[in-house]
Design a protein around this nucleic acid. Structure first.
Lengths: 208, 208
DNA sequence: GGAGAACGTGCAGACACTGCAAATTTGCAT
DNA sequence: ATGCAAATTTGCAGTGTCTGCACGTTCTCC
């Protein structure tokens, strides 16, 4: 973060301002009634600059993080050796959620709300998840001593992504709590089920 | 299929013609150099009509099937009672692939080629997969005697989708065969791994 | 064969997005 | 400080996407 130069810091701020403006305006009027010009104006840059950062307003609302790949790889590499691959991936994603929610909780909630009102955005959000999965593959393969072409890392990453989406969807549904801890619970439950195998539904004796 | 009326048949043909034209033209010049006007002209309808069928040229290339939901539900319901949920889902998806490939193999291959050249399309394709997953949830839940709100059907569908995407990606990669049977093999392998649990990589003694 | 619905089409218009070149800002070495 | 090189912002022009609306045509059903 330090020694990063004024230039990079400014870019980061511009990107954040655009993403923030996109979410705020979309939450207020609905994404269909927000133009790129509106977002750019709210962020204090020209419309042309908007497209230097995002491919369109949908992407701005989702607000993908360019640094995610490096951070995820570092997180996977940093975990103790004695953990199963599934647990490593699980905890890495949990840490990512925690960080994202800690960074700006209100904006996150607003984003969820906007996504809820626009199924097309859900698709984009999941697509961003696919990206994240790809970033994990190499790190998982290295950790397990497998080739990046082996099917296992790909499957684990994809399955973790699936568990994450399911947890996210349930968390965002109207019923139930909607705090970070609850999301973590749901994701852990989902991930453990996947890691344990899904051939048949578990006979549940506990939980509600 | 019979007693369907001239109207529905015509709609089906128009949709197919548009989707076909989209794939053919995109394969020929690259999607960026194909306009909606081009596609519409090739299909023999007005540009305005194009948008009555597809939201944009990307969707036309992917060519989602409006009848998929009903067909999938029927397939799940039609399978013998004594199979595990995972196997039922697996075989349902296998049947879907087989049908799609049988319908027009060359077009399928071309579509794959086009998608390969346009990562944005990959995203769309996966998004279509998400739709399919949602369609399976209710049918799986009913079959297992679970509530559609239970997490198991959602997870199984999502995990199956993940396995399918991984299989698809590997199948479409340059190396290796690219016939329907190979795709089926890959998907079965992936699905069995997921169904068996992913906590740790399997120690492989067989296979290459 | 006629009422009514569904579909195709043309038009107008707002908006999305992209190249290009000029202007501005920043990094760095003198 | 000062000047040069690279990165970034910006305006502009132009193409293409997508939508709402109204009207003509085609099918369905009675």
């Amino acid at each position: 973060m330090p020694g990063e130069g004024l230039r990079d810091r400014k870019k980061r701020r511009t990107r954040a301002a655009l993403a923030r403006a996109a979410v705020l305006l979309a939450a207020e009027r609905g994404l269909d009634h927000v133009t790129v010009d509106d977002i750019s104006a709210a962020a204090g840059v020209s419309p042309r600059t908007f497209f230097n950062y995002f491919a369109g307003k949908e992407e701005a609302v989702i607000g993908p993080d360019p640094d995610a790949a490096a951070r995820i790889a570092a997180r996977i590499a940093a975990q103790p050796e004695d953990r199963s691959a599934a647990v490593v991936v699980r905890d890495t994603l949990l840490a990512e959620i925690a960080d994202e929610l800690a960074d700006d909780p209100e904006l996150c909630l607003l984003r969820i709300k906007v996504v809820h009102q626009h199924p097309a955005l859900l698709t984009r959000l999941f697509a961003a998840g696919e990206e994240t999965e790809q970033h994990m593959v190499a790190a998982v393969a290295a950790r397990c001593g497998l080739s990046p072409h082996d099917i296992y890392p790909h499957l684990l990453a994809a399955a973790a992504g699936a568990a994450f989406r399911v947890a996210m969807t349930r968390w965002a549904s109207p019923e139930g709590r909607r705090d970070p801890a609850r999301l973590a619970e749901l994701f852990i439950e989902a991930m453990d089920l996947v890691a344990a195998g899904l051939a048949d539904p578990p006979h549940r004796s506990d939980e509600g």
